[in-house]
């Protein structure tokens, strides 16, 4: 493992989550689970972050926020969908204001199921994400620029970048 996987910084955004998964993510940072001992830091700045942890599903108001955060992060980057709402919409899938899982909008690398996802599963998901991060780094994967309505197009290195 290189330096990157030894100190991954995460950014967390609560799409329309019920808080259950969010407080479990915070619980991961606190003494019982203490992921900071692995060098994992929760940052508020998308440009500092390597891993984008999203809880909850997409709704009408947070669509743009998620795109903004994703686009602002620098490569390599990995997206972890935490909780069943982020994976597929969960129990709220049929709600009028819920568009579905996070993968309808941005590419998701790791899915962490659960309602609420347990801290152990979240840590497992982040560790899995480290592998993906490392692979993306080695292959110089360029992430797509995400625009509205789930359509993605490759903004940077359109002809040269590995897909």
């Amino acid at each position: 493992m290189t330096y990157l996987a030894k100190s991954p910084w995460i950014i967390h955004y609560d799409a329309s989550s019920c808080n259950g998964c969010d407080i479990e993510i915070l619980a991961c940072l606190t003494p019982m689970y203490d992921v900071e001992r692995f060098g994992i830091i929760n940052t508020g700045n998308p440009k500092h972050a390597d891993i984008f942890v999203v809880t909850g599903s997409i709704n009408e108001a947070n669509r743009e926020v998620i795109q903004n955060i994703y686009n602002q992060m620098s490569d390599p980057k990995v997206v972890v969908a935490v909780g069943i709402c982020a994976c597929s919409g969960g129990v709220f899938r049929e709600c009028y204001n819920v568009a579905g899982g996070i993968d309808k909008l941005i590419p998701v690398d790791v899915y962490v199921p659960g309602c609420a996802a347990r801290p152990e599963s979240i840590i497992d998901g982040i560790v899995t994400a480290l592998g993906v991060l490392e692979e993306k780094r080695n292959k110089h994967v360029r992430s797509p620029m995400v625009t509205d309505h789930g359509h993605t197009h490759h903004h940077r290195h359109a002809e040269g970048g590995a897909q």
Binding site: D14, A15, S16, N19, N59, V65, F92, V98
Partner: peptide, 28 residues
Amino acid sequence: GYVHRGLEKLVEKREYTEYVFIAERICG
């Protein structure tokens, strides 16, 4: 509105006994 799901309208789709699960997920 960033977390608005519209879950109150799910009563149309869930029976009153099943809806307890939705009520519990109003907030974690």
